[in-house]
Nucleic acid binder design. Sequence first.
DNA 1: GGGCCGGATGTGACCGGTAACATAGCCCTA
DNA 2: TAGGGCTATGTTACCGGTCACATCCGGCCC
Lengths: 357, 357
Amino acid sequence: MLGETGPGRVRHVKGATIRDVARRARVSHQTVSRVINGRESVTAETRDRVVRAIRELEYVPSAVARSLSSQRTHTLGMVTTDVSDHFFAEAVAGAEAEARKRGYFLIIGSIEEGSEDDERTYLRLMLERRVEGLIVAVPRLRLAEDDLLADAVARIPTVLVASDIDLAGADHVDIDNRRGGHEATAYLAAQNHRFIATITGPLDWPSARARLDGYRDALRDAGISADRSLVEPCVDWGLDSGRRAAERLLESAPRLTAIFAQSDLLALGAIAALRGRGMRVPEDVSVVGFDDIPVSSVFDPPLTTVRQPMREVGELAARLIGDRASSPRKTKGARHMLRAPLVIRGSVARLDGSARR
Amino acid sequence: MLGETGPGRVRHVKGATIRDVARRARVSHQTVSRVINGRESVTAETRDRVVRAIRELEYVPSAVARSLSSQRTHTLGMVTTDVSDHFFAEAVAGAEAEARKRGYFLIIGSIEEGSEDDERTYLRLMLERRVEGLIVAVPRLRLAEDDLLADAVARIPTVLVASDIDLAGADHVDIDNRRGGHEATAYLAAQNHRFIATITGPLDWPSARARLDGYRDALRDAGISADRSLVEPCVDWGLDSGRRAAERLLESAPRLTAIFAQSDLLALGAIAALRGRGMRVPEDVSVVGFDDIPVSSVFDPPLTTVRQPMREVGELAARLIGDRASSPRKTKGARHMLRAPLVIRGSVARLDGSARR
DNA sequence: GGGCCGGATGTGACCGGTAACATAGCCCTA
DNA sequence: TAGGGCTATGTTACCGGTCACATCCGGCCC
């Protein structure tokens, strides 16, 4: 099996092309193309010859050449916040599954916290690769006034995930965070809690603000007046932040009987801090989280939390793109909200009227 | 801005090509190419004209055409088990970061549990896309005798992650699971435990078998004879499996004083089951996990566990590919083992000699 | 038996870049 | 002042497929 690459040129294992196969099977390259694409109108006998030649030459068709010629890449791009965050990993998994079901490949760009203009770079690279759709799951997106994103939207179907940027032409997919925050808080109020604190995520995340809005809505609905000292924002969504926030709350609002934490990790951190102060959960302080990460159910106590269906978010995003691609372009983007249901477990206690502090 | 696409052909928003830009800037397309690629030897004035034309036409170079012509795709492929598994998501994140640092894009194929011949499909698709390197992180890979994988290895730099398939020419990256299992078990033995049970992952995972080997090694080293009733395999790595396994163990081996669970979730499930039986951790039974997932540290008790540096695994895999690609091809693949260190927290109690049951 | 039809196959252009080489000025030196 | 060498730019082929259309051939109809 000597390389017939011609003199000089050494090229690693010069792959066979459609024409090499054609020559070997003594047909035209077009006939090979027909066989590859399973078109009718090829004699069984010819087909056999071609198939054999393909096998003998270990021919693998080039998706690159095919894309150039057919103007289709069958590729979706997804730009996300760091995939090592469980939350986004789920969304990627969902999008990937749905994309593949529809015959698309997913290329991802995962943005590390702290790096500069990465979303711009990724957007540009994906446009260059001629992705046929774009999923942007970067909550803190700073691209609002950016031409680049608008440009992308103008060229290809684009879905913004968990973003509050309002870009005509783009679809939006998000969790109904406001409602989720409302449900969590209303549930605490229904258990007779009146001093309900909240530990929020970073307030430059739209989801954090929406959950906070939901929290406030619920307090108002329950006739509880808002108290600024009961709201404790964090710089990130992690355990340590939750721990520290709980400690600050215990200083500033010692009368609290319940905490709505905007993530499960914040909640778990808060619980750890409460325990550190000798308080019991839920007997002394009730806690509700947000996310429903896998361990929430085995935690002690099992965490009552709001479940985010991130996988479905990813799936929906990919599906919307698929629909856009196949059907005539709708003019305006829609905003799709997925409900985040409250999962009641054991971290909330009912306060009987007399027991209010 | 009327489309100059020619009569008939409507084509959505026909993108400008290098030749369109050339025409507008009154230069040859080659000069445009030079400008795009930042080559010297273009007059500042010419460059300006070209840059302006690019902007006016909203020209975005086509990576597809470039790839076809230059025979480089700057793309790495990664086939993994479902990325919604935190473990693999970390590896993907690491690989992605490292790849991009080296100018590569990552396309991923995430294999859902239960689907049929997906790894074959993905491999084929990635080969078609002419990825310049391949990371295969599918522990349960059934491709041992498969021509397809061997084919891939022959064509492009390939790294197998956490696989025990021995494929000459491929690099291997893995956690040193045997040593990790040894450390966990040895630590328990050093705390005077003698009846040390283990809850394993599915034994068709090489990592599960290696950890089990490490467990046995450690028992032997400590002069403890093996007891089959102390080994409890599970069908998956999840919480429920851990819970059920612990319950079975309590039946079959009531004298156990310690459990080495092969994943943190298994460990947490086991702890939940133990508590359900009224036993305390670590006072009655000590538990060690494996993984060090984010919540392990706040669990009650904080979980002593073996930390898996999955992110680094991904990074290393991408780096190896980068090295292979740039340096002359080494003949044989190497096996790289990353150490998984024991993280001591609070879920193990020291048994004093008299207290042995 | 000529013409038409339709299936099987071949031909040449084209997709949008890059590479190699050609060419045209220009400056410098002998 | 001719020739060498360098810079700026243009020309043409090529990467490996797909597409549109041409061609060939056997069967069928009148």
